[in-house]
Amino acid sequence: MDITLLGHFVAAAEAPDFARAAQALGVSRDTLSASVKQVEAELGYALFDRSAESTMLTEIGIAFLADARLELAHAAGRGSQPGAAGGSGGGSGGGKAKASKGRGRAPAVKGQPKLGKKRQSR
């Protein structure tokens, strides 16, 4: 199961309602709701009681929340170790930003003579 989906489920389960969980995650409420529905579809069980006025977990949801927290903690531990499979820490990779090759030079201005170049005489 996708770690992002697990993170969305845990945030929704711990928050008083989906709107606050979505705000804390920086996603829309619809995105959060779709993520939770996708988790429920993958598991085949309803994790939230949709008839309640606030966010209420079902018994299966409570049991799954503990497993989801462990999985997230385990994934965070793998990601922080250099050289771990799927991790983004340490190592030299192609994803690093490169320094500008023109660093230290003044920008060229149209119509002005180039610095360091002498004008050609006629």
Rank of each mutant, 00 (worst) to 15 (best):
T55Q: 08
A34R: 11
G26T: 02
S33A: 11
D67R: 11
L43T: 13
R29K: 15
D49A: 12
A24N: 14
S28D: 13
D67A: 10
S54M: 07
P16L: 03
S28M: 01
L32Y: 01
G26P: 01
F48W: 04
L70W: 04
G26K: 03
V39N: 05
A19N: 10
G61W: 04
R50M: 11
E42C: 06
F64H: 07
R69V: 07
D17W: 06
T58R: 01
G61R: 07
S35D: 09
V27R: 07
V27I: 15
R29M: 07
R50Q: 13
S35P: 03
T58P: 09
Y45M: 09
A46R: 09
A21Q: 04
P16A: 12
Q38H: 10
A63N: 02
S54G: 06
E42P: 02
T55V: 08
L47W: 02
Q23L: 10
A24W: 05
D49R: 02
G61E: 00
R20A: 15
A21D: 03
A46H: 09
Q38N: 08
E59W: 04
S51P: 00
F48Q: 04
L32Q: 01
L43R: 10
V39E: 06
D30S: 15
S35Y: 08
T58F: 03
V39D: 03
M56T: 13
L57D: 06
V36T: 09
T58Q: 06
A21N: 01
I62E: 13
L32P: 07
L70K: 12
D30Y: 13
D67E: 11
V27T: 10
S54T: 14
A19S: 14
A68G: 02
A52E: 09
A21M: 04
A21T: 08
A34W: 01
K37R: 15
F18I: 09
T31F: 06
A63W: 06
D49M: 10
E40D: 08
D30P: 07
S28N: 04
L25R: 10
V27N: 01
S33E: 08
D67H: 08
V27S: 03
E42A: 14
T55D: 00
A41I: 00
L65H: 12
E42K: 08
F18T: 13
L47G: 04
R69G: 03
I62H: 13
E53K: 15
G44K: 10
S51H: 10
E53H: 14
F18A: 15
S28W: 05
E53L: 07
A22F: 02
A68L: 03
E53F: 13
S35N: 11
A41V: 01
D17S: 07
M56C: 11
L32K: 07
F18K: 14
G26R: 01
F18L: 14
L70N: 12
R50A: 06
A52D: 12
A41T: 11
R20K: 15
L25H: 05
D49K: 06
F48G: 10
R69L: 04
A24T: 15
D17A: 12
